[in-house]
Design a binder for these strands. Structure first.
Lengths: 191, 191
DNA sequence: TATGTTAGTTAGTAACAACTAACATTTTGT
DNA sequence: ACAAAATGTTAGTTGTTACTAACTAACATA
């Protein structure tokens, strides 16, 4: 019964609307209209609204890039690595922006104990702490530095930048995201 | 007609629910029940749902503390000032947490062109840039440093920390918010 | 005692949204 | 050109929700 194309169109529209307005503020009719499809077609493809939501939510593009990077592409030059990680982070967040918003707006609906939005930063944190530990052993990070705090701050800054760019674009009018990241990493390295 | 007490109780419950579940997911019945009041009482006090939402939203405790601090309490010791500002920031965000969540979840409802969640960081940014400029002139910040980027990073880190503490408490299990802030500011100062 | 204020109760309306069913129409592959 | 698959249309059911109206009960105060 299903046609892959219309299925995808409906999913895309659904993600868009759910992330913009939240689950309960979106109607099937609205989704159908925007997807240029009849209401019935939506039901035929997804059975019910909640299932549509879950299917949208499962669209999260998981983070294989990070795994690969930490396994193969580290240079162990602090500046280069951190820059690359920041870029990867911003990319990943950008790609999954809508899903992330969807989770923020509908957290009560997400029963999955380990949703990707939660596990992603935690896994990344683990990898970063390990990386910093290696660098500390190599003498490239001061011995007295608290690596947990350093990691959390690194992730927090990156998240904060992502948030500000998307929710407060006025803030980043005079300076680009890239400049901010460079500034932050430069100041990190000097200590 | 209105009794100040029940009015406040209803408002408080409403803020709670709106911030947790979003406008359209909350019913008047629900609010009434949780406030231990009949549905009618809610309507008598607030006329309609949207008005209740707006009244809740207006509860935002604006930032007079910051104004005062920047006018009177600056020490012009970079470390002390930044620590204090971070503390004030976290306090303000904590106090207005629910309202902030309310805005995030219902941004489409907020027609007000200049909502406090938007203006607060922008005003703070202005003040911070000015402060950093003064400090740069005093020679306490390197001449080549981009102050816009520095400010945005400072705010982003603080926001990121606030977000992580509230939405990803697991992240901050082994290290306290205060430790992270100290670590961040220490590393800022060394550059 | 009388009166006004505040809140509860009950019943009901109007609108809307999720979802179903039956049938008609278009599109697609062969 | 034909059959099957995909989509549209229409009408209706069911449940929910914002909101109204009319009436009642408790209580404070003058």
């Amino acid at each position: 019964m299903p046609n892959k194309d219309t299925y995808e169109v409906i999913l895309e529209v659904a993600i868009n609307l759910f992330s913009k307005k939240g689950y309960n503020s979106v109607t099937i009719k609205e989704i159908a209209n925007e997807a240029q499809v009849s209401e019935m077609t939506v039901f035929r493809h997804f059975n019910n609204k909640l299932n549509l939501f879950n299917k949208s939510f499962a669209e999260y593009v998981y983070i294989p890039k990070f795994k690969e990077f930490f396994e193969n592409d580290l240079t162990y030059n602090l500046k280069d690595d951190l820059l690359k990680i920041s870029q990867l982070y911003q990319e990943t967040m950008e790609n999954n922006k809508k899903i992330i918003l969807m989770e923020l707006k509908n957290d009560e609906l997400i029963t999955n104990p380990q949703s990707p939005l939660d596990t992603f930063p935690l896994k990344l944190k683990e990898k970063l702490v390990n990386y910093f530990l290696t660098m500390q052993k190599k003498g490239l990070i001061k011995q007295e530095r608290d690596l947990e705090a350093l990691t959390i701050n690194f992730l927090s800054t990156n998240f904060g930048l992502f948030f500000n760019i998307n929710c407060l674009p006025e803030m980043l009018k005079e300076v680009s995201l890239e400049d901010c990241i460079k500034d932050y990493i430069d100041s990190l390295i000097e200590s």
